[in-house]
Design a protein around this nucleic acid. Structure first.
Lengths: 340, 340
DNA sequence: CGGCTTTCTGGGAGCGTTCACACACTAAGC
DNA sequence: GCTTAGTGTGTGAACGCTCCCAGAAAGCCG
């Protein structure tokens, strides 16, 4: 109150109409790019808007249209992962870019703890946003369930099995994981293990499936370790565990670059050379990959494009366009560097 | 339209009032926690809300109150830095946490290019947000100017010299830079250089000032290189440049951990050992610091708390409370590890 | 018991839009 | 000259809330 009071009253559509000598209906039509506005009116209104310094009052517009012109980006990760995961930032930027092109606002909803879930579900129910982009949902994620229940237009980045009918954009985790594993095998490795993570998510379980595909008969369940998070720490622990199980291991597929980075640190400590003694490949092509010594061979996933594409899809849904395909798969690319 | 149409009509305050047999005025008072609501009315309304599944319509409320219950987080960085800079993510999380506690929404506004500036200024003028937290503003930042001009309550993270009167929360960059430099000198270094960055920001110029303070007479302008961004790349270039200027350099203060990480990679390439041949210290205590070999001695800055505190301050401003102090300085901490 | 204060309630007005409808004008077709 | 279709414009009625005022009811005092 104290702060709003001393700001000058904002110009309304009435002021513009009066200044331009037309009715507010005409101004509204012109503002919304509707047809049936004469050139003379258009011109007068443009001048009037500039003169009185008019900007639309969003609250009024939202109230009248029953829409909010805002899209939620729901990130379901503990804070530590939010900071460490390079993909999330890129997805955020991609989504934000696309939405601002369409004059929509991005509202970040970060679910750090389960306590947040209920609050956020309420928020989504409240009509604050017209749609949502959901990042890194788990299988049977309560938020995902809430959204389908509310009937809010939503697009997943990734494709949880528990919500098969929801629109999504993703990558072919299984295929890409198979490909990079085959690259590793092609360097002549005989005993290859995997540091898996986040098996409660499609990305995690699919990457494991791809690894299994590539190994075929050679697949040995004993050479797979898995962790809840794609973190460097897990990579450290995972590598230690693998070496205990098989000292003669000569290849590792880490389900993310961060895992791989942790694994490489362990190998260095133990005096094992990369790629000499052990070949290692990762997934993501994040900056972790470039910071490793040697640099990491990995799968490039276009995180920013995933964000853009998800935003585009949710905008289509909001505008009543049903996408022809329920999901879109973006291409990945193998990046061969020094680590295998 | 297609999507909103098939969702059931949401309950309004009228429905609640009818169900509870009171007037909508009473419901509104109760909802806003105002006094003068009888216990019997309160109870009836609570039941009615649960029964009809009422949630407030924010647009209507915003229109009536002329507030938006949203705060903007303005980040002025190119996309690459947004992803690489560990502080920004932590500030975002801190701000988001504090705001959701107060039932405010965070709206992210990312200024990647100058083209965005005008659009964002318009947005701020539009009454979409009640206030703003501004991260990494440059000196004479057009957005900062726009905000003071609009009269929007805003708090800076950091303290640009060009906006001395604006509320801010920050750290003592100069003091902390001096302290960490003195730690470096205490290891017996004779020829110490600095890789500076972002001198167009208070953080950058203050850290340089602190370095100069610590060196006193020994300060040699020739041993300072500076770059626009706190990036690993700049660290690489900076270290190369310093070694060219003085092959016998035995100490480096890098203005951020990312710079330090780049510098260390160059040293390793050149066959120089850390901390044996060259001691190196950084700033931030981000995960870069832990990923270095050896781990980096650095200054811990409480980025998440900066975000929280900025959020608290902007909420105070929005509610008409003028903070007793124009700025708040949060403590930093020296983290000594293996690099110096 | 009359006046005064305090507590509580109802409902009109207004916030700034959009939407739907009614109406005015023009041009074309027969 | 009368219809008909196509353009362009103005206006009342929402949208769902908060604010504020008037007034009822209840409690207190002398």
């Amino acid at each position: 109150m104290a702060t709003t009071g001393d700001r000058p009253r904002r110009a309304t559509i009435f002021d513009v109409a009066a200044e331009a000598n037309v009715s507010r209906g005409t101004v509204s039509r012109m503002l919304n790019g509707e047809p049936y506005v004469s050139d003379s009116a258009r011109e007068a209104i443009e001048k009037a808007i500039a003169k009185v310094g008019y900007v639309r009052n969003m609250a009024a517009r939202n109230l009248a249209t029953q829409r909010s012109k805002a899209i939620a980006l729901i990130v379901h990760e503990p804070h530590s992962v939010f900071l460490e995961d390079p993909n999330i930032g890129a997805i955020l930027l991609g989504t934000n870019d696309r939405l601002s092109e369409a004059d929509y606002q991005l509202v970040c909803l970060i679910i750090g703890s389960d306590r947040d879930s209920a609050r956020i579900a309420d928020y989504l129910r409240g009509g604050f946003v017209d749609g949502a982009v959901i990042v890194s949902a788990r299988e049977h994620d309560p938020i995902a369930d809430a959204i389908t229940h509310i009937g809010l237009p939503a697009v997943f980045v990734g494709h949880p099995m528990s919500a098969p009918d929801m629109p999504y954009v993703g990558i072919d985790n299984r295929g890409a994981a198979g490909d990079i594993t085959r690259e590793l095998l092609a360097t002549g490795r005989k005993k290859v293990g995997m540091i898996a993570a986040a098996l409660d998510r499609d990305s995690g379980s699919e990457r494991l499936a791809g690894f299994r595909d590539a190994l075929g008969d050679q697949f040995d369940e004993n050479l797979v370790v898995d962790f809840p998070l794609y973190s460097r720490d897990s990579g450290v622990q995972g590598m230690k565990a693998l070496l205990e199980r098989a000292g003669d291991l000569d290849g590792v597929f880490a389900a993310s670059d961060a895992l791989a980075a942790g694994a490489m640190d362990v190998l260095r400590e133990k005096g094992l050379s990369v790629p000499g003694d052990v070949g290692i490949v990762g997934f993501d092509d994040s900056d972790w990959a470039l910071r490793c010594q040697p640099q990491l061979s990995t799968v490039r996933q276009p995180a920013d494009l995933l964000g853009r594409e998800a935003a585009s899809m949710v905008l289509e849904l909001v505008n009543g366009i049903t996408p022809e395909t329920p999901g879109r798969i973006l291409p990945t690319e193998i990046k061969l560097r020094g680590s295998a």
